[in-house]
């Protein structure tokens, strides 16, 4: 559904994406991870043609987005990171009007709007002006507008930033349902448990490049290690945890010896595999230091001024 080949984009002389290639097939959730400024938003903007590639191609449903922008965008639903809603309209009017703008016919629209509002737990506030809704409710309306037309490709850029757990569960549930119905989804986030909950394949961007990719388990196998968590008892009676990477359980005696005088404070030991968080930190650190590259033209402008 989405195919990106050798995509490179620069803002002025600063590269934002460098030779990025990836694909998302129908029914797949691709978790797009990376630190701030890694190029996640730029990549999504390139898919909807908001930024032009310096090199490489982006195709949606087989259509090159630079050659057939309208036909390609007709297949895409996009919820940017910034909430974009019409605050003077009600939640229902926002979603309904957006469905109409995206070409959903009148007969199918009422049903699609009701189903989308319901899926995102917006029934109770559907007829309230969006300006009176909470931040989490606004974000759900924002997401509902992206999904109401049931696009073939859905781009969600940090859809759960700043929301409560109930909103997060609602958004994730909706994303899972859409993927199960065959929508190809590109999901950018900083909350790594979300990509695990979505059982997403991961592309990790760092400094504009694909640093690694694969399923969560694959990434942990490839980049993770065995970790020993040592729980040490402090003078105040509280325990603190110190983690040490090891090659295997056989290294445990050496780790314990390394504690020296603190060995007497040892309250517990746990041997485990690296978490996705630790793999993320390791891969990003391996990619080199952050270079302050802007993640969008707006940031580039702000930097310049």
């Amino acid at each position: 559904m989405l195919r990106i080949d050798g995509l490179s984009i620069s803002y002025g002389r600063r590269p934002a994406l460098r030779d990025v290639s990836l694909t998302v097939v129908p029914g797949q959730v691709l978790g797009l991870l990376g630190p701030n400024g890694a190029g996640k938003t730029t990549l999504m903007n390139a898919v909807v043609g908001a930024v032009r590639p310096g090199a490489g191609t982006v195709t949606v449903g087989g259509l090159d987005v630079t050659r057939h922008p309208k036909r390609a965008r007709a297949q895409v639903g996009y919820a940017e990171q910034e909430i974009a809603v019409f605050p003077t309209l009600t939640a229902r009017q926002n979603v309904n009007d957006w469905a109409a703008i995206c070409g959903v016919g009148r007969r199918r629209r009422a049903e699609a709007v009701a189903a989308t509002l319901s899926a995102l737990l917006l029934d109770e506030v559907a007829d309230r002006p969006v300006r009176t809704l909470s931040g989490g409710e606004r974000r759900r309306v924002h997401c509902a507008m992206a999904t109401v037309a049931r696009p073939s490709l859905l781009l969600l850029d940090e859809p759960t930033v700043g929301v409560d757990p109930a909103t997060r569960r609602a958004v994730l549930g909706h994303v899972r349902d859409l993927a199960a119905a065959g929508t190809a989804i590109c999901y950018s986030t900083h909350y790594l448990p979300e990509v695990e909950a979505l059982d997403a394949d991961i592309v990790l961007l760092a400094r504009g490049r694909v640093a690694t990719r694969g399923a969560v388990a694959e990434l942990i196998d490839r980049h993770g290690s065995t970790v020993v968590d040592l729980r040490l008892l402090g003078d105040d009676g509280e325990t603190r945890t110190v983690s040490r990477q090891v090659i295997g359980p056989d290294d445990l005696p050496a780790v314990l010896q390394g504690l020296g005088a603190d060995l007497g404070r040892l309250a517990g030991v746990e041997v485990r595999r690296s978490t996705l968080d630790e793999v993320f930190d390791h891969v990003v650190a391996s990619a080199g230091p952050a270079d302050g590259r802007p993640s969008s033209p707006a940031e580039a402008v702000a930097d310049a001024s």
Binding site: K70, Y78, E80, F86, P87, M145
Partner: peptide
């Protein structure tokens, strides 16, 4: 101001 200009531009509307 509402960020809806970019949102509209990301649709199939020319």
């Amino acid at each position: 101001g509402w960020n809806t200009w970019n949102r509209l531009r990301a649709t199939a509307v020319g």
